[in-house]
Computed example of a mutant assay.
Amino acid sequence: MSDVAVIARDRRDRLGEGPLWSARENALYWVDILGRRVNRLSLADRSVTSFEQPAYAAWIIEREAGGLVAGIGLDIVRLDLPANTRETIGSVDKGIAGNRLNDAKADRQGRIWAGTMPAACDKPSGAFYRIDPDGIIVRADAPYTIANGPAIDPEGHFLLHTDTALATIFRFDIHDDGSLGQRRPFITFERGWGNPDGMTFDADGGLWVACWGGGCVTRFTPEGVRDRSIALPASQITSCAFAGPALDRMFVTSAGDGVKEPLGGALFEIDPGQRGRTPEMYRG
């Protein structure tokens, strides 16, 4: 377990998720979903600040026009930090009690792809949505028990999305109008790998997947073949993102909820031996 650093701070995340590199701020954002917090790590001085939210803080993405957009509960909001004020763009899963947002990414067209799931992780009541720059929200696919990922082909031809409960990463073609093609299994996790959670592409087209219950991040080739893994000192690994000016560092989130582990819920920094891609921004 070489070159694994633990980011120093005064708390652990109940359910750390959604790391996002901000080049314009030289900072890493991530969320603690169950802790209802948005966190920020300054790479300049390694300081961490935390902003409490009124509901589950599911994800955070930069806006091209400046500022941030976030998934809070079932609402998509423009989030102003450090003032920590919110302006609602729209909502999803209306009328479905017990659901929440979970994980999202922006694509090169400036759209957001975001999944939902039951907070209890107990039934396939979740769905997968597209949020367009004009604020229109489209239900793109269903059902999901634990919607995770997603990872979007940098060329915009396809996306990958996961149902962690099924231990399967699915592939969808993206049509010119933003609709999705048929859901097809791309990678099915074997026993002992853990279950697929958050993921990201590297500059060579490899897919890095956080392995919930597997205590590692695993790289798959563009063809979906398991390439290598980096072990981490926590079992519930939730997501990963390339960061730093050269995009050659990786930050990895984890969850402490439900486990008695000294580093459960820590934020880790590792050397992945690859470079990543600059994350896309929302154009709304």
Rank of each mutant, 00 (worst) to 15 (best):
S2T: 13
D3N: 15
A5N: 14
V6L: 08
R9I: 04
R9D: 07
R11L: 12
R11E: 12
R14S: 09
R14F: 12
E25T: 11
L28K: 12
L28Q: 15
Y29P: 08
Y29F: 14
Y29A: 09
R37I: 15
R37H: 12
R40F: 15
D45Y: 11
R46G: 14
S47L: 11
S50R: 14
E52F: 13
Q53M: 14
W59A: 04
I60F: 06
E64N: 08
E64A: 10
G66E: 05
G66H: 05
G71H: 04
G73T: 01
L74M: 09
V77L: 07
L81V: 01
A83D: 11
N84S: 02
R86H: 09
T88R: 03
T88E: 02
T88S: 02
I89Y: 00
S91N: 03
V92M: 01
K94D: 10
I96V: 12
G98W: 02
N99C: 07
L101W: 05
A106N: 15
Q109M: 15
G110D: 12
A114R: 02
G115Y: 01
T116N: 02
A120F: 09
D122G: 03
P124L: 09
P124G: 05
I131P: 07
P133I: 13
D134Y: 08
I137A: 05
R139M: 03
A140F: 03
A142P: 03
Y144S: 06
A147S: 13
G149H: 04
P150K: 08
A151G: 05
E155T: 13
F158Q: 10
L160Y: 11
L160K: 04
R171A: 08
D173N: 04
I174G: 00
H175P: 00
L180E: 00
L180S: 01
Q182W: 05
R184N: 07
R184S: 06
F186Q: 01
F186R: 02
T188N: 00
F189K: 00
E190S: 08
R191A: 10
R191L: 10
R191E: 09
G192Y: 04
G192P: 06
N195L: 11
P196N: 02
M199G: 06
M199N: 10
D202I: 04
A203P: 04
A203E: 11
D204A: 12
A210M: 07
C211H: 02
G213Y: 08
V217M: 08
V225L: 12
V225R: 13
R226A: 15
R228L: 11
S229T: 14
I230R: 11
A234D: 10
A241E: 09
G244T: 12
A246S: 15
A246M: 13
L247I: 14
L247R: 13
V252N: 05
S254Y: 07
G258T: 07
K260Q: 14
E261F: 03
P262T: 02
G265M: 01
A266I: 00
E269Q: 09
I270G: 00
D271K: 09
G276E: 03
E280P: 01
E280C: 10
G284I: 07
